[in-house]
Design a binder for these strands. Structure first.
Length: 682
DNA sequence: TTATTTACTTAGTATCAACTCT
DNA sequence: AGAGTTGATACTAAGTAAATAA
């Protein structure tokens, strides 16, 4: 069934929806808010004012200080001005948006501090909108839509050094929007006085509406929510492909390793490129690069992936006397201009190949030039020929990627149906999670077993200690749950590191770390204090023994020794009462005071344990926080880790899935829940 | 072939909402 | 109750890769 739909490309039979919700029209600034030029208030035309507010709203953001941003903004803004405005406003430096900025900050603040009922009202209105526009009917099921609103107009915020940052992103109009729905469904109504660009019925795609965005001239789509059935199905298939890779990955690796020795330059480059994409050697010797498609120069930030790597991104470190092995250093800006910097030990053959690939090239030349059309190794068959061709140096050194990625993917397709470069990231990520979970929680099942055998329920003394006096194993269940979750996060983090998922250090990081440290110090003090108190209680108990050891009869002595306290190697030394003589009624009194003193010791002991636990938990939290400082776990969790691995692990270790996946995530992974038994293996 | 277009996944950040602590 | 934290969500940019056009 799935096979058929995949082959035919048909994705639905019925699709009905209300079309996108459009950004409300621009609301002019209130009378009291002014824009100033050269110190004088200027009443702008509506269009120019709107664009001015886009900039004013962003005044606190770093991008407004960037020259490219300011230049692009100013140039686009001037296009929206009237002739007079354009004549007057010639320098951005003379523009004063501070009143506009203050206005929007105050408005946001006002909304935050709205009384509870008004907030409730806003929430209800949002919910109404969601109900009206946020769902569609797909093959008889009501499915949630991911983004049912068109993107509002504003200033483009590219990441990294984006040449187009600050450009005006135009308002989307119904006339821009193509609607996709089934022919016989209720066709969505365009807003009054407008019409759609087109209404079509293409059931080989999943989008509901689309428009062309004016910055990059690319499509934007209204699509389904990840919780929807078709999205879930695709997610599932993605992991199934990755699992099939597991079956052939050894063969593939053997082959590309063999290809490192191929006489054909192209083959060797392909083999090394694939190695860069695949190499997995935890904990810190993996590469896991993205494919690195070609990008149009000047249209986007200069970022690269495997196929678009340039010589300048690679450094080779020959084996040193210290015996470091062959090390490759990669340093480049990857997706989202996130820096990828890594030292990795590689096989000698890889190293030699790289030396060869880099020979006689400029830093700006492509590393894998034989896989790109204009590269100097491009059409060369063998090294021997290559050596004679060295004069073909400056043939378009910039040409990158597309040829490389498509030949790479074509090669992979031959090795396994459905295999592409990005599958390696999915595969390596999921396999790493599974393995790390195994390693990091290896101890837990054993300790559960031990608990059964030696648990707390052993015979207690007859000192009439009440149940609560028994030293409980320190809240085992809860404590081990904390440990398990910490272990899960560690495993998750290993994958995030593998995939280089970074985030900006949270603005509040230092401060909240400090408060946490303070808490730890306070807890340490409490622990020390509790320890002193325990010692004092122990001395008290011993004192009773010192003063009246003889008063205890033999039977009581036995009882005493069998109390949990004595058994724990406490302060009453074994044999301490051995020579006590029977002394009848007096022993009852002694027994009483010992009971009280013992109970005191037990109480102090419990308190100490509890505090020590709290301290341990705080320390764990601090570790977790520190390790997470620059690592984003969410991306791996959402896009790379087969949820069935986590679900199976939860079942095996008795961890409630809610501790791992929040509500949205459980909805997103709904497809996985009835699939993964506790013995699921990726 | 090679370049362009299209459709979909992957990504980090800003903001919003909920919760914790004082 | 209000401030401060934290977690969740909304948002949309930036990739991948297949399909299509030239």
């Amino acid at each position: 069934m799935w096979e058929e739909t995949r082959k035919s490309g048909v994705k639905w039979q019925q699709l009905e929806h209300k079309g996108p919700y459009f950004t409300p029209a621009y609301e002019p600034l209130p009378d009291g808010v002014h824009f100033f030029y050269d110190g004088k208030p200027v009443q702008l035309s509506l269009a120019a004012e709107e664009v001015a507010t886009f900039y004013g709203k962003m005044l606190h953001l770093e991008c407004t200080t960037k020259e490219v941003f300011r230049r692009n903004f100013f140039s686009d803004w001037r296009k929206e001005m009237t002739a007079e405005e354009r004549k007057l406003i010639t320098h951005l430096d003379k523009c004063d948006f501070t009143e506009i900025h203050r206005h929007f900050m105050e408005r946001a603040e006002a909304r935050r501090t709205l009384p509870r009922e008004q907030k409730q009202k806003l929430k209800e209105e949002a919910e109404k909108l969601q109900q009206e526009f946020g769902y569609c009917v797909l093959d008889g099921h009501r499915e949630k839509i991911g983004n049912f609103k068109t993107e509002p107009p504003g200033l483009f915020r590219g990441r990294g050094d984006h040449p187009k940052m600050g450009m005006l992103k135009r308002r989307v109009m119904p006339e821009d929007v193509v609607i996709n729905c089934s022919r016989d469904s209720k066709i969505p109504e365009p807003p009054a006085g407008h019409r759609w660009r087109e209404v079509r019925s293409d059931n080989t795609v999943l989008w509901l509406a689309a428009w062309v965005e004016n910055i990059q001239n690319s499509f934007k789509y209204i699509v389904l929510n990840p919780s929807s059935k078709p999205k879930g199905e695709m997610d599932w298939q993605k992991y199934e492909v990755a699992r099939r890779l597991k079956g052939v990955v050894d063969k593939i690796r053997a082959q590309y390793q063999a290809d490192w020795k191929s006489p054909e330059m192209k083959k060797r480059q392909l083999a090394v490129a694939l190695y860069f994409i695949d190499k997995l050697a935890p904990p810190s010797n993996s590469l896991a690069l993205r494919t690195g498609n070609e990008k149009e120069e000047g249209e986007t930030a200069d970022t690269v992936g495997c196929c678009s790597l340039r010589v300048e991104h690679v450094r080779l470190h020959a084996p040193s006397a210290g015996g470091q092995g062959h090390v490759v250093e990669l340093d480049f800006l990857g997706k989202d201009s996130i820096r990828y910097k890594n030292h990795v030990t590689v096989e000698k053959l890889v190293f030699q190949n790289l030396e060869h690939f880099m020979e006689d090239k400029d830093p700006k030349d492509n590393l894998f030039d034989a896989l790109t059309p204009g590269g100097k190794h491009g059409s060369v068959q063998a090294d021997i020929v290559l050596e004679k061709e060295l004069n073909v140096l400056d043939l378009d050194p910039q040409a990158a990627g597309s040829e490389c990625t498509s030949s790479l993917n074509k090669h992979l397709q031959d090795l396994m149906e459905g295999l592409t470069a990005k599958v390696f990231r999915t595969y390596n990520a999921s396999v790493t999670l599974q393995e790390q979970l195994r390693v990091l929680t290896r101890g837990f099942q054993i300790s559960l077993f031990q608990k059964e055998m030696t648990g707390p329920g052993i015979a207690l003394g007859l000192l009439c200690l009440t149940q609560k006096d028994i030293v409980q194993p320190p809240q085992e269940a809860e404590d081990s749950l904390t440990c398990k979750i910490l272990a899960y996060n560690r495993a998750n983090r290993a994958v995030a590191v593998l995939c280089n998922h970074q985030r900006a250090v949270p603005k509040t990081f230092e401060k909240s770390m400090q408060t946490l440290q303070k808490k730890i110090e306070a807890k340490k003090a409490q622990v020390a204090e509790a320890r002193v108190e325990l010692q004092k209680a122990e001395t008290d108990l011993r004192m009773i023994g010192d003063h009246k050891p003889k008063s205890i009869d033999v039977a009581t002595c036995r009882q005493l020794k069998s109390t949990p306290y004595a058994l724990r190697g406490g302060v009453v030394p074994s044999g301490y009462f051995e020579n006590a003589t029977p002394c009848g009624s007096e022993s009852q009194h002694i027994l009483d005071s010992i009971r009280v003193a013992t109970s005191g010791v037990l109480q102090k002991q419990r308190r100490l344990l509890k505090l020590e636990e709290q301290l341990a938990r705080l320390r764990a939290k601090a570790t977790d926080k520190e390790e997470n400082k620059q690592v984003a776990l969410g991306t791996a969790k959402l896009n790379y880790l087969d949820p069935r691995i986590s679900i199976a692990w939860c079942k095996r270790f008795g961890v409630p899935v809610e501790k791992i996946y929040n509500k949205t995530q459980r909805e997103r992974f709904a497809w996985a829940f009835n699939q993964a038994g506790e013995d699921f293996e990726f």
